[in-house]
């Protein structure tokens, strides 16, 4: 069947079976391979994207459920050459090693910072419960998210 949605601000449509997961649709139908699959039990968070502004594990949602939705993936986070503050902070603070968990981490953290612009370290760690990283020991991921929160608050103040 045909599924249509907005992905990273562009209207797209493609073929999906009723059982096709959103992550499969993104990766195989649209070729957006930045969203990863790390598990089959909705635990690892490598697949996190935003659907209508909230973080969602795209392995836990059917493509057809996203019919008509606004979807943002890691590929849609930078504005042209300008990285999202979280992307920049992950690089600046060495918040990634193999990079496989990174898109999910960034998408998940972006949702956190939207609802809680100045989280404590503890709150960041608790929020990341649903995202597994095997490489970094989380130390620099947490650091990067706190730093990005700082930057984003600064930018928000400047805009006021």
């Amino acid at each position: 069947m045909k599924v249509s949605m907005s992905v990273n601000g562009k209207q797209v449509s493609g073929e999906a079976e009723p059982r096709t997961l959103l992550v499969e649709f993104l990766r195989y139908e649209l070729g957006l391979t930045g969203t990863h699959v790390g598990c089959d039990t909705s635990q690892c968070g490598a697949c996190v994207v935003h659907v209508n502004g909230s973080s969602v594990k795209s392995c836990t949602m059917l493509a057809v459920q996203a019919e008509g939705a606004q979807v943002t993936t890691i590929e849609g986070m930078a504005q042209g050459d300008e990285l999202h503050p979280l992307q920049a902070a992950f690089r600046e603070h060495h918040g990634l090693q193999c990079g496989f968990c990174t898109p999910g981490m960034i998408m998940s953290a972006a949702d956190l910072l939207k609802t809680n612009p100045s989280p404590s370290e503890h709150e960041v760690r608790e929020w990341l419960e649903g995202n597994i990283c095997r490489c970094t020991g989380y130390h620099n991921i947490v650091k990067a998210i706190l730093a990005a929160a700082d930057t984003m608050r600064g930018a928000a103040r400047a805009a006021e």
Partner: peptide
């Protein structure tokens, strides 16, 4: 030094085996 490889990973442009078709 910040890592050269990060640009592709933070923008979702890494190329892992399953990304290849």
């Amino acid at each position: 030094v910040l890592r050269k490889e990060d640009q592709r990973f933070i923008t979702g442009r890494g190329r892992y085996t399953d990304d290849i078709n």
